[in-house]
């Protein structure tokens, strides 16, 4: 059975290209355009990995990540943060959020697939 990846980003165009890449690589993809919707899908879809944008209109990516990592049910799901800006200071926040990795936009999709693949293998 193919692995399921949840993509949470409020930029529909980003969601579209990332989903396309992941599906092409053989993953099942579910998408959410807001943090709240993303959290709902974590519960209903039980994804094997989450790609999470940092800047979301309703809940910050950090907070979603922290919430998941502090929840016994979901802490084992790898979380990869997507961000368009790394400002000094946010690196610390990144570490404390418990995220498994972080990818800076614009990203190379091969890097993305490599990181995703490695984390899913590790989680098994």
């Amino acid at each position: 059975m193919s692995k399921k990846i949840l993509v949470v980003d409020d930029e529909p165009d980003i969601v579209q290209v990332v989903s396309f890449r992941l599906r092409n690589a053989g993953y099942d993809v579910v998408t959410a355009l807001s943090g709240r919707k993303g959290l709902d899908l974590v519960e209903s879809e039980r994804p094997d990995l989450i790609l999470l944008d940092l800047r979301l209109p309703d809940i910050e990516g950090y907070d979603i990540c922290e919430k998941l990592k502090n929840d016994e049910k979901y802490k084992s799901i790898p979380v990869v943060l997507l961000t368009a800006s790394i400002i000094s200071g946010s690196v610390k926040k990144l570490e404390s959020s418990g995220a498994d990795d972080c990818i800076l936009k614009p990203f190379d999709y091969e890097d993305l697939l490599e990181i995703v693949g490695k984390l899913i293998k590790k989680a098994k």
């Binding site: 930029e11 165009d13 980003i14 368009a84 936009k105 614009p106 999709y109």
Partner: peptide, 21 residues
């Protein structure tokens, strides 16, 4: 500057990936 660079990166990512695809 940091906001502008953020706002630039998002469409840039979409452009790059969609042209690649």
């Amino acid at each position: 500057v940091s906001t502008v660079s953020h706002e630039l990166r998002t469409p840039l990512t979409a452009i790059r990936e969609s042209i690649d695809i």
